[in-house]
Structures are given as C-alpha cells and as structure tokens.
Write a protein that binds this DNA or RNA. Sequence first.
DNA 1: CGCCCAGTTGAGGACACTCAATAGCGGTGG
DNA 2: CCACCGCTATTGAGTGTCCTCAACTGGGCG
Lengths: 236, 236
Amino acid sequence: MKPISLQAIWLSETKCRSCAVRNSALFSGLEEADFRHIHPPIKDLALVPPDALYRMSQRGSTLFTLRGGVMKLVQYLPDGSQRIVRLLRDGDALGLEALVGQPYQQDAIALTDCEICAIPVEVIEQLGREQPRLYRELMTRWQQALSDADAWLTEFTTGTARQRVARLLLRLACPEQDSHLPLFGREDIGAMVGLTTETVSRTIAELRRQGLLRDRGANVQECNREMLRRIADGEE
Amino acid sequence: MKPISLQAIWLSETKCRSCAVRNSALFSGLEEADFRHIHPPIKDLALVPPDALYRMSQRGSTLFTLRGGVMKLVQYLPDGSQRIVRLLRDGDALGLEALVGQPYQQDAIALTDCEICAIPVEVIEQLGREQPRLYRELMTRWQQALSDADAWLTEFTTGTARQRVARLLLRLACPEQDSHLPLFGREDIGAMVGLTTETVSRTIAELRRQGLLRDRGANVQECNREMLRRIADGEE
DNA sequence: CGCCCAGTTGAGGACACTCAATAGCGGTGG
DNA sequence: CCACCGCTATTGAGTGTCCTCAACTGGGCG
C-alpha cells in the first residue's frame, strides 16, 4: 500500500475564485471580498488511483474538497477485510472531522485520478468569524455525508446479491443523468455491497447474459434501467 | 402505527439552565447569560415506546436533544422491510437536518420511555449569531452522528450472525461501564444487525447454552465480555 | 513470448432464510 | 381465580443463496 504521495502537492495556480467546482463547493455563496484574506495556504493536490489522501486515526488539521474524480472511504475489520462506507465525488467534502479536532475516521483512497483542494482548519475558522454563513454551508456538507451514509447502509447491506448489485449499477454506472462512472474492480464492488468478488462477478455476468447490461471492460455501455429498478426493488 | 403524540408536549418547568444532561448536551459550554433570550420556545416532550418523534420526509423546523431514554432511527425499503440505521441515547441530537432546511430522513421512534427537549431552529440561529461557539458544538454533534453511522455499518452488516449478535451485545447490553440497555424485541435486534428474528433468537439461545450470557426476560444479567469479544472479532 | 493480475466459471458445503409448529407470558373477561 | 386469547420468543425441518477453494481464461506489460 502506497504512502500518501506528498510529492503530489502543488501550490495552486488558480485561486478559489476561479475554482472549477466553485458553485457546488464549500465556498459557494461567499463574496469576492471574503477571499482577500486567504491567498496563502490553500493548496491543490493531485492523486492517482491507489493513493491515499489520509489514513484512519491520523490527526490532521486540513479538510478537503474533491474538485474532480472519485474517492472511497474505507474502514477495516479486525480480521483484515475491508468495507467501503462511502464514495465521494465532485464537490464532496472530506476530512470534516479535522474541524472538530478528531482524527480521520477512515482511509480516503483515490479510485480515479483526483483533483483535491486542501484547506487548513485555521482558514475556515478565520473565515467563519467574519462570515457565519460559512457554517451553514459546512453543516449542509455534514448532513450530506450523513444522508449518504444512511442511504448506503439501507441500499447495500440488504437484499439478495442481485438486488444489491442492481442498486449499485443504478447509482454508479447507469444514473439518470450522464456522469456514468466506470465499474472499478470487482474487489471494490464487493467491498461496497458486502459480497465476495466471485459473487459479484457471477451476478454481473448473469445480468449481461439476460441483456440488461452491456459493457466494454470497465465502462458500461448501456443498461436497462427499468429492469434494474425492478430487480433492485425485489420485484423479481 | 401510532401518530406523533402531540398530547405529550409539555411546556418545560425546568429551563435549560437546570437540564439534567446540560453538560453533555447541545448547550454545554454556553454562559448563563446566553440563555436570557430563549425563555419562551423550548419545550419538553415525553414519549412512550412505540411513539414516533417525527416521520421520514416530514418537514420540520425543530431539532431535538434526547435527555433520557433510547430511540431508533428507521429507514424502510421498497419491499416494506425496515432497517435501523442508528440508535440514540442520552445527550444525542436528533433532527439536525431541520437546521439546513431538509426534511427528516428517517422515522424516529422511541424504544423506551423518552424525555426530549425540542428546540426551534430559529432559537439556534439567533443564538448562533451571538455565540459562534454554538456552531462548533453543532458540528461536533454531526460528526458524532456520522461516526456512529459508519461504525454501525461496519459492525452490524459484516460477518456471521454470531459475530453480529456478539457485537450488538457488547455495545448495548454488556458495555464496559454500567448503562446496560434492555435487549428490546427480537424484531428490533434483527433490524439492527440485518438478520431475521428466528436467526437472532437461535443465536442468542446458543450463546445462553454456552454460558456466555444469562438474562431474565429482556434484561441481561451477566455476560462473558472476553468471550464475546473473541466471537465478535471472528476468532472462533 | 511469457508472466502476472483481474476476472470468470465450477463444484461442494455452510449458513441463514422460509415456513410451520410449539412454548411461554401477560392481560382480559367470564 | 382460572380459562382463554394474542403476542412474542423458541425450536424444527427443508431449502436456497452465498461463500470457499480451486481451476481456468484473457488482457496488459515487461
């Protein structure tokens, strides 16, 4: 397992005011003037797949915004097996626990190439004093994470293998909108839905055979959303 | 299923300044003076077992502090089965989502007699303007909930029935300290650990037969923590 | 070309689910 | 006071799903 690639840290050329995800990100809604004080310490990171942004029980004084890419939050069990407790995507916040002085609760690992914005806790605290509105924004992030966690639990730990995989496909690979994600590895899928890689493989193969799914390598080409929905809801 | 028992609402005799859980509760750390403005609208509720404090997708403008008792947060699946995503105990906060304008995400249902403090969102917002320290307190609550949710997922959705039940017992009925909880119904236990009531019953019966557990009705009398720990970690 | 890793497929067995019958408990009413 | 009802917990038998272990395939890269 690779250590955190500190080499990947870049001082950002573009400041937050021109950030790609500015509108959906933490500082959306703040005025131009509010940024005057925070030139210096905000940094950009770039991660490549199995890089870790941070590891469980590390103490940090930085929180992060994911500007692009997908990351997983992983917890480990005493027997060594891993469980993915959440996925993070564009605009999501990571490492909020640093804000209340707690160590990070999981390993945060890149599943795709990632662009990340690292924000020191002091910046938030300083900004928060002048702009209480920021707190509302932060609380929204937290609520978002909590909602995700709860949904994750009910969707991916209940029902048959078939149901769980169908739900995962609907959520990741064939969502309503665009933003299709690759299917990652079977191992990761297994850690998301609580099944072995073999069972995941068999289940996906079955869906393919039934023509509900067509994929080329890791990328899903096409899928029958109605059918998958019916399977996910246990109607067959 | 009973509706919310609005009759249960009492105007609090005792104000927050003398609240039983003041130190562990939301307003801990606030000065006496800060309470001057909030006499009027904080209310006390009393719930009795299958009462609901609120229901999923209701819109509310109140958040709650659980002063005593145990509540469950329940989500439902399309097939009608239920899943308990978290338990709340003395000092925990409920309904934080109201603070960011979202509807409640689950049903909150009393498992024991409960004493609850209901705080209108405006009170928080007003208080927060004068006392930014309150926001730190709120964020800590959120982080607490998130940690609980993640721990819940890894502990109660992985491993054999035996392991899950052992973990539940360690957490609820035989914790390190006192604060032993009753074992609730088999149905609820099942909804917590993702097993059927029959499997839960069999598993507990087995533990009893092996002398790791002695109970009278719903109350656990005695249990072998070391052994349960070993089972929980999958060492046998 | 051949190695290595990820994915697929197969066979067998364990574990938890389903359905069903029984036991225990508390409350109600005769 | 006891008989009966209803609900919950327990136990049993049989089945199905998923896990385990193992072999095989295919693509990427040195």
